[in-house]
């Protein structure tokens, strides 16, 4: 048995990825996720509109910091729809009308509890987009993103590494195929399957959990397609850095885990320390969650989601571009140089 234990330790010592997962990862995960794991939102971005704004602002508890640079012409409901703030108070009515964004579940729960402490009749509270604060309504749009991430990253990387593991990538490299044909030929089937999955998951989610779809379907499809490019790019990148399917799965899980916990769909980004929230802002799922929740629940338009679309598009270009470049490099540069040189003969 001693020899067996010694052999196992020696093998583990040389398996740097597993060692990293065993030693470094728990510390990193505990530190980052420990800070991130917080359902309590201490500060809820708030806007106060209407003629009587100043006295109401003064009465608000500290957890409702008032945003000063909001569009002066926008109504309270528009500020919520466009995700400018999570709480908007219209002081032109008597009593003042408080609108809470139900799509920001934890912020809404905290806000609802805080306004319940106000004297009876001081304010009228209305929760928009998710009046019963149903968890499934917030989770399903985000889960669509998570499922697409799973398919795009794990399944794609496994499918591509399989080619390398079985030795057929070498065969492809010396066949008279353009590098772009090989790359697209490998990725397009996963893109189509992921699109089918996206439609199925969205329809089933809406039908099974009664999640409303208030926005533009085409805009949602566009956001999902851009997001798919990002996650497929991640899958291809992982495959270029893995020799076996086990390695690909290991790396994909290491990429998937932070997206689950730091993208804001379980723990609200507003409740995280700034540094951890910034890590969340580096993850593509964070932006897709904003897009899917915004379109499905709030019926948000392109204007209010422009930043999310922009960041996702940038990520798609960078990640997908890097993935294709690395995949192309794997496909034997000298062979393709030769193919282009005299391929026409």
């Amino acid at each position: 048995m001693k020899a067996m234990i010694l052999k196992e330790f020696r093998e583990l010592r040389r398996d740097k990825r597993t060692m990293a997962m065993l030693i470094a990862l728990p510390i990193v995960l505990l530190t980052i996720f420990g800070y991130a794991a917080n359902f309590n939102v201490d500060e809820i971005p708030t806007a106060v509109v209407g003629d009587n704004a100043a006295p109401i602002e003064q009465q608000l508890p500290d957890m409702f910091p008032v945003e000063s640079d909001v569009d002066a012409d926008a109504t309270a409901q528009e500020l919520i729809r466009d995700n400018v703030v999570d709480v908007a108070i219209d002081t032109s009515t008597q009593p003042a009308a408080v609108y809470i964004d139900g799509s920001s579940l934890f912020a809404a729960q905290s806000a609802q509890a805080a306004f319940a402490q106000f004297p009876d009749g001081a304010v009228s509270v209305e929760i928009l987009y998710n009046p019963d604060l149903t968890t499934a309504w917030v989770m399903v749009p985000a889960l669509i993103g998570l499922i697409l991430t799973f398919i795009g990253t794990i399944i794609t990387s496994i499918g591509l590494v399989k080619e390398r593991q079985s030795g057929t990538i070498e065969q492809l490299a010396v066949m008279p195929l353009k590098a772009s044909d090989v790359i697209l030929g490998k990725i397009v089937p996963y893109f189509i399957l992921a699109c089918v999955d996206m439609v199925v998951v969205t329809v089933v989610g809406v039908w099974l959990f009664d999640v409303p779809f208030n926005g533009n379907v085409a805009l949602f499809a566009l956001g999902a397609a851009i997001f798919l490019f990002v996650v497929l790019g991640l899958g291809v990148l992982i495959s270029t850095a893995s020799q076996t399917q086990a390695q690909a799965i290991q790396m994909a899980i290491m990429m998937l885990l932070p997206q689950i916990l730091l993208s804001g769909f379980i723990f609200p980004l507003d409740a995280m320390p700034t540094v951890i929230a910034w890590i969340g802002h580096l993850l593509p799922l964070t932006y897709f969650v904003e897009i899917s929740q915004g379109i499905m629940l709030r019926g948000a338009g392109f204007d209010s989601l422009m930043v999310n679309f922009g960041v996702l598009t940038l990520m798609a270009v960078v990640i997908f571009g890097a993935a294709v470049a690395r995949f192309r490099r794997d496909l034997a540069p000298s062979a393709h140089k030769r193919a282009t040189k005299d391929g026409a003969k």
Binding site: A173, P176, P333, S334, A335, G343, K345
Partner: peptide, 19 residues
């Protein structure tokens, strides 16, 4: 076969269609 590039020397080989 062209699957790896030589760091030195020469490779005389037909195009990929003929390998």
């Amino acid at each position: 076969a062209g699957a790896v590039a030589p760091t030195k020397g020469r490779v005389d080989a037909p195009s990929l269609e003929r390998i």
